[in-house]
Amino acid sequence: MLEIKDLKVSIEDKEILKGINLSVKAGEVHAIMGPNGSGKSTLASALAGRDYFNITNGKILYEGKDLTELSPEDRAREGIFLGFQYPVEIPGVSMVNFLRTAINSMRKYREQDPLPAGEFLKLMREKKKIVEIDSDLTNRSVNEGFSGGEKKKNEIFQMALLEPKLAILDETDSGLDIDALRIVSNGVNKLRSPENATIIITHYQRLLDYIVPDVVHVLYKGRIVKSGDKSLARELEEHGYDWIKQEVDAND
């Protein structure tokens, strides 16, 4: 589904990603872990098409298409979803209005008619259950005055509603208490299917107790320095990142 080949990304003149190779197939869950500043969020943003990055080398192929040629909105319409680390507030715009605009933009791209209001509301009700979201939340303005946990739940709720093929969850677990973590993870697990794939970006292993990944990658200094199965995550939890850092730095 996703093929990243020798991807190099800079912000201004600073190279953040220094040659990423990653292959994600439908039905898989990949976890990308790494210490702070290793480039995890840059990778997520580059996949979603944030424009302040320069892609200086390499390719991102998504379902065989060159992703870098698509605008951020077209990437979203092609089924890429980014769960934001810091979801943005949009005052005065209700969640209902926001999501209806989003869904209908996507439907238009696929040459479908807009979803009638009644059906849309029904769909919202269904999806709200997945993340145990308050019905009141969707009448409020987008993320405005939401608690940290509500914001993250809201991201997964949007994911449920938009049914992406490839979901990239950027530090979705950060700032969550244990109940919210359980709810968010359950949501992600319920949405897993053989047709879609998920990339989970996280600093901590604890999320991976709830969402079991097929592959774990360690990102350090802009490169994937180690990949393995879920046991790699546990190893990192026990020993920290230092042993990997030492290994990599010794080879530099």
Binding site: A76, L99, T101, A102
Partner: peptide, 8 residues
């Protein structure tokens, strides 16, 4: 960008 990422 947040809107873009939701297809808007």
């Amino acid at each position: 960008f947040y809107c873009n990422q939701r297809g808007i």
